[in-house]
């Protein structure tokens, strides 16, 4: 059992195995994103209240879901890195943090653009907007803390501790902010109940969410591979690889 875990945690093994996945991940994400975008923007029916402006949901909701999933990934990587010292987990966390921050920003930006036709203002101090903003600050804190250390290992451990502290605090922040003020509509997707919109509206959204996840997987895998090459640039297998490609 432990042998398998250590094999899975070996950067060299991951580099070798993930290579063939990449084209599949990229093409799957492009196909899903194209289908979802065209379906959502051109074929899905317009909303009876909001008209065409609701179509921004096809970017807004997937980005918001990804922003939160990415933080969960950070926390899982942090546990794996702190407990078992598996470097691969930290490499994934290093590259996933900027991605999560970007998704949070996209969710905030699209939400604010959407706010103009629906609420008549760019920004309201609503609970879910505010907790997304706080999520963005948490991401920025983790990225900044990692960068502040001169030793990479210290930076990795500090960022991992902060990610864990953040993930424990995130639900508390979310609930306290909810208590404080709520204007936003409730979550679009839930596992336990029927979506409030018709199927021809939420199916393209589902495709978009899956597309975003595939894009996430592809980006993180691709950038983790780069990070592996960067950190292991002194090992023999990376040198041999570099000589082979030259």
């Amino acid at each position: 059992m432990w042998q398998i875990v250590h094999k899975l945690g070996s950067p060299k093994w991951f580099y070798r195995v993930s290579g063939p996945w990449l084209p599949w991940l990229w093409s799957l994400s492009v196909v899903l994103l194209v289908i979802g975008t065209v379906w959502g923007l051109a074929f899905a029916p317009a909303d009876y209240q909001q008209g065409d402006s609701f179509r921004i949901i096809y970017v807004h909701v997937p980005a918001a879901i990804l922003a939160q999933s990415c933080f969960a990934l950070l926390a899982i990587c942090a546990v794996i890195f702190l407990v078992w010292r598996i470097k691969l987990a930290d490499m994934a966390a290093t590259v996933a943090a900027p991605f999560g921050a970007a998704m949070t920003f996209v969710a905030l930006f699209t939400g604010s653009v959407w706010g103009i036709p629906t609420w008549g203002t760019w920004w309201v101090w609503d609970a879910r907007l505010t907790s997304m903003l706080i999520l963005l600050f948490l991401y920025l804190g983790i990225i900044a803390l990692r960068g502040a250390f001169t030793s990479r290992d210290s930076g990795s451990r500090a960022a991992s501790i902060l990610a864990l502290v953040g993930v424990i605090n995130l639900p508390i922040i979310k609930y306290s902010v909810n208590w404080w003020n709520t204007l936003h509509q409730p979550a679009t997707f839930s596992l336990t109940r029927q979506p409030a919109m018709p199927a021809e509206m939420w199916l393209p959204l589902l495709v978009m969410v899956l597309g975003f996840y595939m894009f996430f997987a592809a980006t993180v895998t691709f950038r983790t591979r780069n990070e592996i090459l960067r950190r292991e640039s002194r090992t023999r297998w990376v040198r041999e690889l570099a000589e082979k490609t030259h």
Binding site: G141, A144, V165
Partner: peptide, 12 residues
């Protein structure tokens, strides 16, 4: 950096 890390956690 300390304030960037801590202020979001102070919100509740």
């Amino acid at each position: 950096l300390l304030s960037l890390l801590i202020l979001p956690l102070y919100i509740p």
